[in-house]
Design a protein around this nucleic acid. Structure first.
Length: 205
DNA sequence: AGCGTCACGGTTGAC
DNA sequence: CTGTCAACCGTGACG
């Protein structure tokens, strides 16, 4: 399902006659960042950014109490499509967290095989430079010219693997989430949380 | 009326 | 350091 929602094939719709008002489809709300928007339900959101954690929590919590998605949507002022998506994902993964945004997949050459080889090189010769590793990958036929890792990728990998202390491995999911919430709070001043807070201060409807 | 789905404009972050 | 690009975001509209 996620696969579908994720959009393997975002096929052309039969008849989408420009539903979107170009250049901003919802009211803009003035914030220190100028990013906040107001949706049809009057809720504030930041286009392109995930809803704040506490809203997500609230959604699953309410659903847990048997409150219907449409009610949740209205009450939290979040579009029902979003409520549906979050609930759906929660059911599937058990997590309320948004997916990893941004970044790009490691190049296809970053296979476990290549990774192992690099580790091996480095173990055999800790003083080896990234460009030397790159050369050796080519020479040993691990990669070819088309898919060989860039020097900076290699050095990044080395930094991750050998550089910064490699202590804690499996972190408790709870722990991760807790830390995330903390971070969220710290960020709140510059995020939708802050905006929402601001908004509440000014217009308590 | 409620819900699933998806195009859209947007942001992010590894490369 | 900067640009590119593919991942994800929530909204809004359709069915």
């Amino acid at each position: 399902m996620t696969a579908l929602a994720g959009g393997i094939s975002k096929m052309m719709r039969p008849m989408p006659p420009q539903n979107y008002p170009r250049g901003g489809y919802s009211l803009e709300v003035s914030t220190p960042l100028g990013q906040g928007r107001v949706n049809q339900l009057g809720g504030v959101f930041i286009n392109g950014r995930p809803l704040p954690n506490h809203i997500r929590h609230k959604i699953v919590e309410m659903a847990h109490h048997g409150i219907r998605p449409c009610v949740i949507s209205r009450q939290l002022r979040v579009s029902h499509g979003c409520v549906s998506k979050i609930l759906c994902r929660y059911q599937e993964t058990g997590s309320i967290r948004p997916g990893a945004i941004g970044g790009s997949k490691p190049k296809q050459s970053t296979t476990p095989d290549v990774e192992k080889k690099i580790e091996e090189y480095k173990r055999e010769n800790p003083g080896m430079f990234s460009w030397e590793i790159r050369d050796k990958l080519l020479k040993d036929g691990i990669c070819d010219r088309n898919n060989v890792l860039s020097v900076s990728s290699i050095s990044r990998m080395l930094r991750c693997k050998f550089g910064a202390g490699n202590g804690d491995e499996d972190e408790d999911d709870d722990e991760v989430e807790k830390r995330e919430i903390e971070e969220n709070e710290r960020r709140a001043k510059h995020s939708i949380d802050g905006i929402l807070g601001d908004r509440c201060k000014f217009c308590r409807v």
